[in-house]
Every structure is written in C-alpha cells, then in structure tokens.
Simulated assay, not measured.
Amino acid sequence: MAQWIDRVGAKRMWGLGFVIFSAASLANLGLDGLGPAIYLLRCSILLGAALVFASSLCYVSQIAPPSRRTEAIGLLGVGGFLGMLVGPLLGDLFLGTGQRSREDFAALFIAAAVANLVPLLLLTKLRSPEMDGPVRSVRLTDFIRTVWRYWPGAILLVDFAFGVAMTCPLIFLASFIDQAPLQMGNLSMLGVFFTCYAGWAIALRIGMRRWPEVYGPRPVLIGGMLFMALAMFAFLLVDASRPWLLLLPAVLGGTGHALTFHTMTSLTLDPFPPQYRGTASALALMMLDMGTFVGAPVLGKLGQVAGFNSLFAAVGVTCLGATWIYARCSR
C-alpha cells in the first residue's frame, strides 16, 4: 500500500480507499449468513479505511508548507474526532436499543456507503501535489530500503505506545463499564465518555493548532504523551460509587490525543522527502496498529488475571517509558 501511494499518488489512492469502503459496505447487503464472504468484506472495509487514512496523511504532508505540516495533519484529524462523536449516535439511530432487524443493518450499511461517496466527490476538487523523481517501485525490498535510509528513530516507539494506549478507549472501555458497573441514570456511559473525549479534543486541536509551529512539535508531543499516561492512571479512580469520575480520563485522554497524534505523525514523516511520504505515512500507521495488535491480547490477559486497574496502570507506564526514551534520544 505504501509503495502504491508513492507510485500512483496520494489523491488517487485516497479516492480508491473511499471506493473500496463504499463497495464493501454495500456488498454486505447481499450476505445471508456467516461464512467466508463476511470476513472478506470485513477485510475489504479495513483495507479501504487504511487507504483513506494513510493516503490522506500523505496528501496533507505533501500539500502543506513544511512549517505548518503538523497543524495541517492536526486539522485533518479533527475529521476523525467528528466521526468519533457522530458515529456512535448514528449507530444508535439506525440500530436502536431493541430488537434489530435486517432492514436496520441495511440502512446502516447504505448510510456508511453514502458517507464515503460524498467526500469522494469533494476529493475530485482538490489539486494533486506535484511530485518530482522517477517512477517508484512497489517491491517490498524497496519499502524496507526506503525506511532504512530515512529511519525516523525513537519516534516509532511513541507511535507504538500510542497504539497500545488506544486499546483502552477502543477495546477495553466497554467491558470496564459493564464490569464495574458504571451507571448514571439512563445515560450511555460509553457515549458520555466519547462525547467528552472527542468534543474536548476537537476544541483543543483547533484552539492549539499553532502550538507545534510556535513551540515545536517535540515538546507538544511529550506533553501530550504525559496526558495520555495521566488518563490511564485516572481510570484507577473510577468505580461504581463514582461513575461521574469517568469524565476525568475522558478529558485527560482527549487532551493527550489532541496534542499527540498529529505531532508524532509529523515527526515520523519529517525525515522522508515528499516523494516517499506514502511510505512514511504507512510506517507511522503500521507502528500504531502494531501497538494495538500486540497490546490488545497481552493487556486482555493481564486484565483477566490482575484486573482492570493493573491493565490501565500498565498502559500508563508504557506511555511514560516510551516518552522518556524518545525525550532522551531526540535531545
């Protein structure tokens, strides 16, 4: 994928990602049971999402002036936070809380397809970045050679740690809420968390969009990772008698996310020349996904054996450790 972004261009691959996601969503309408097809379509949806994510990062990094690249990536990320806000609400709207029918899921898949076709049309209005240099190979050996040549260093460890940290809100939080259990009237505690997390992160990302340019991406990143660690430790204060304290890790985590993702991504992309930004974007996302892929089963086992407090504490320590190593190596 990384090599094809460099070869074909970020804008075209971005559009291809939207097409794949929309087609796979609509193809779900033809399913009539569990089987290989459902796994193929699930993989296709993930492929489409990966193409959109990596290509959009690459495109923005190629279009934005170098001094404002981090800000541009941050504003792009606001769209992700908006999806985090609106997605659960739309899911509840289409699927509801009662008995779910085939028609409910059909409406959800159609809405997902339309939601990707609209930005595809808007994408045609964007200019294509001008890239110099020869046509690039799509061989794996060339990907490895490019990464080795422009190796970004210890920032990849931060990418990995951030992926580990994201397992908490995206994978383990729902189980934590159910097991505690956390209740505040008829409110969905998961919805409350993500509304606070994403809403606060959007406000900070927009309000502090010039911080990386003014103070530099490195100190902003370090501060963001410290907030991510604090968010993990703040989960230790939450229990059934104090469900409202779930807002604390939501605010701290939203702050950490708002300060971290765009700065660590920009710092990962920085050593690579513009014509290899597809490779750089894929590398950054690969390390983040690896943190989630490796962290999820390990933390899940830890949570089973020692409880959620140990799980959250382990993630907090991971964030602190990665931040300390990066701070030492990047001085």
Rank of each mutant, 00 (worst) to 15 (best):
A240E: 12
Q304V: 08
Q183D: 07
F227C: 14
G77S: 11
I222D: 10
A327I: 09
L31N: 08
Y39E: 02
V214K: 13
L283R: 00
P243A: 11
L190A: 05
L302V: 13
R7T: 05
G307Q: 08
S241E: 14
Y39L: 15
G80T: 06
W14M: 15
S55D: 03
I202W: 00
V135R: 15
V220L: 14
Q62W: 02
F308N: 09
R42C: 01
R139Y: 06
I144F: 13
N186H: 12
E213F: 03
L46P: 00
D270E: 12
L259I: 01
S241Y: 13
L75S: 02
L95W: 04
G80R: 01
E71V: 09
G256W: 07
A234Q: 06
Y215G: 14
G295H: 01
L120V: 01
R100G: 11
A322K: 04
A37Q: 09
G199S: 11
S67T: 08
V298A: 02
L26N: 10
P271Q: 04
Q183L: 12
N116L: 00
W244S: 10
R145H: 14
T124I: 04
E213G: 11
A37S: 04
V294D: 00
D132Y: 04
F109G: 07
S101R: 07
I171N: 00
A10E: 13
D289T: 03
T268M: 09
A10G: 11
P181T: 09
V220N: 08
L157T: 02
A231T: 06
L26D: 10
E213D: 13
V251M: 14
L95M: 14
T195Y: 09
A180F: 04
A203L: 15
G321C: 12
A106S: 09
N186I: 03
M286T: 13
I5K: 11
R69G: 12
A258S: 08
Y197A: 02
S241V: 08
N186G: 15
F160R: 01
S330V: 07
D32N: 13
L89E: 13
H262D: 08
R331F: 00
P273F: 03
I325D: 07
